[in-house]
């Protein structure tokens, strides 16, 4: 029997994961246990600094007694729970979720983990047919109505990139609708509520009121939505431009943790530097001060130390 220690919770319960009996803290999620035990579990809508969203359904596991699979990110362990992570049913669901996403969303800029999972689970998005052409006004679809498809192409969310301000772009052709940005803009961090899911079903999308431009919205450009976006749908203009120019080189970037130079809160900043220039600012999600969330000054207010070649 092995003991897993996660934080300071003291009561332990017994669970069985893939045949191994574990003592784990009450209140932990199944995913907490799996991560602690090094059982790799794909996640998309989960983030360590957000409450479980439970929408992507890629982290599903089997729990004895449950007819359907359960989301490991949201389900808390119970004494006597028997969990299986490597069954055919689990693998099938994970493959299908990744495949359905890949067939409808541009996943090119998702993390290398996601790319690897797609290979490992045998994802084949091509079997749904060639992608339907991009649409300019996906937001204009009438709720609860759609044109009957003939099946010759696969519906998808391809659409133009929205660039309506100097700080970030919204590239919703890459949006998997994981809701992380909505939660970061809302009750998990920023409480600005500039964006919400709008529309329904396959037409559901992330939007400001009336699908307006960001500068007309409540957005305060904290960039916490960018910080949690798993697929590159939200990114800084800087990153967007570097990528467009073919100059985005994550492998060359250094990341240095320091403290923001503005107000007295003392937020941890991770400065991502490429060729002597700050190309991105993030914050560690496990730090007590920020929980990974910043304000506009912390995330974007570094221009004054950019040592530009002609300066």
């Amino acid at each position: 029997m092995t003991t897993v220690l996660l934080g300071s919770i003291s009561r332990l319960v017994t669970v069985t994961v893939d045949g191994r009996e574990l003592r784990v803290p009450e209140g932990a999620t199944i995913l907490d246990v799996l991560r602690d035990r090094g059982v790799e579990t794909p996640t998309l809508c989960w983030a360590p600094n957000l409450t479980p969203i439970n929408a992507c359904r890629v982290c599903m596991v089997e729990v004895e007694g449950s007819r359907v699979l359960v989301p490991s990110c949201a389900r808390k362990v119970e004494d006597g729970m028997v969990v299986r992570t490597d069954t055919e049913k689990v693998r099938h669901s994970r493959r299908m979720v990744l495949e359905l996403l890949a067939s409808s969303v541009d996943m090119d800029q998702a993390s290398t983990d996601v790319q690897r999972w797609m290979v490992e689970y045998g994802v084949d998005p091509a079997r749904y047919g060639p992608p339907a052409p991009p649409e300019d006004d996906r937001a204009g679809h009438r709720v609860g109505h759609h044109h009957a498809p003939d099946g010759s192409t696969a519906a998808n969310v391809a659409q133009p990139v929205k660039v309506d301000n100097d700080l970030y772009v919204r590239d919703y052709a890459r949006c998997i609708l994981c809701y992380k940005c909505v939660k970061a803009c809302g009750t998990d961090a920023q409480f600005t509520f500039a964006i919400s899911a709008a529309g329904r079903g396959f037409d559901a999308h992330i939007a400001t009121e009336y699908d307006g431009e960001l500068p007309d919205s409540a957005c305060v450009y904290c960039g916490n939505c960018i910080g949690v976006c798993p697929t590159g749908a939200l990114k800084s203009v800087r990153e967007h431009e570097l990528r467009e120019d073919g100059d985005w080189r994550p492998e060359e970037q250094t990341v240095t943790t320091t403290i923001c130079s503005f107000c007295g809160v003392g937020c941890n900043l991770e400065l991502h530097v490429q060729q002597g220039s700050i190309v991105n600012v993030t914050s560690p999600s496990d730090h007590d001060v920020t929980h990974g969330h910043l304000c506009i000054k912390g995330r974007f207010g570094f221009q004054h130390v950019q040592n530009l070649p002609d300066a």
């Binding site: 700080l167 450009y221 503005f262 570094f302």
Partner: peptide, 14 residues
Amino acid sequence: YNSGVQSGGYASPM
């Protein structure tokens, strides 16, 4: 921020 010497340099949409 303060007298603006640090914050004046970036393009805030607000």
